[in-house]
Amino acid sequence: MAYLALDTSTEYLSLAVTTPGGIVARHWHVGQRHAERTLPELEALLADTGIARAALQGIAYGMGPGSFTGLRIGCGIAQGLAFGLGLKVVGVSTLAALAAGCDAPRVYACLDARMNQVYAAAFERSGNSWREAGPAVVCDPQDAPQPDGDSWVGVGSGFAAHGDALAARLGGCLSETLPERFPQAGDLLRLALPLFERGEALPPEDAPLVYLRDKVALKTSERLKP
């Protein structure tokens, strides 16, 4: 019996599956080719780990924030797999997955949101779980929420795209930055497993997505305002 996780929220594809020997995770830099690569790579991962489709018990996926189209490819695949196999799904925050991938007690997770903005949230470790120190936001890098205290590890593509602006805004709070990190399915799966165990997984038709950027167009009435 096994659980599966996938993340397609960035230019990486990341897959992970639980096996008797622990979590097996793989990732690839695929650019925008998630649709072409995800299912064939999943087929290979299942074959290599000897896991039959019928042995899957639940599907976790990166629910955002991230690339809108990438998120929907991952969510759509999670929905199709879960619906076809009669399973439930767990959506995991990509920022939380970024944090969980860090061996540090305080993590400032930040992804490039394009349009000169970032997605950001701060997380504090307490035992084996993580607490969100504030709600995840989409904002200009110079307005990124400032966490309390110091010794925060900055992680994610936000620091690659807007390093200077974030350093100016958060400099005193940060102990180091890891701009090359991306959300990984192995970390995502570790965060999802307790939710599956507690029966908090959802039917695939209710699979949530968190875009954060919800204002994507102006209504006619808004365009007409001077």
Binding site: T69, R72, C75, G76, Q79, G80, L81, F83, G84
Partner: peptide, 15 residues
């Protein structure tokens, strides 16, 4: 890509 993703994953699941 929405319809394509659900359709392909469903096909994958059901073989």
């Amino acid at each position: 890509l929405v319809g394509a993703s659900v359709a392909n994953a469903l096909g994958f699941a059901l073989q």
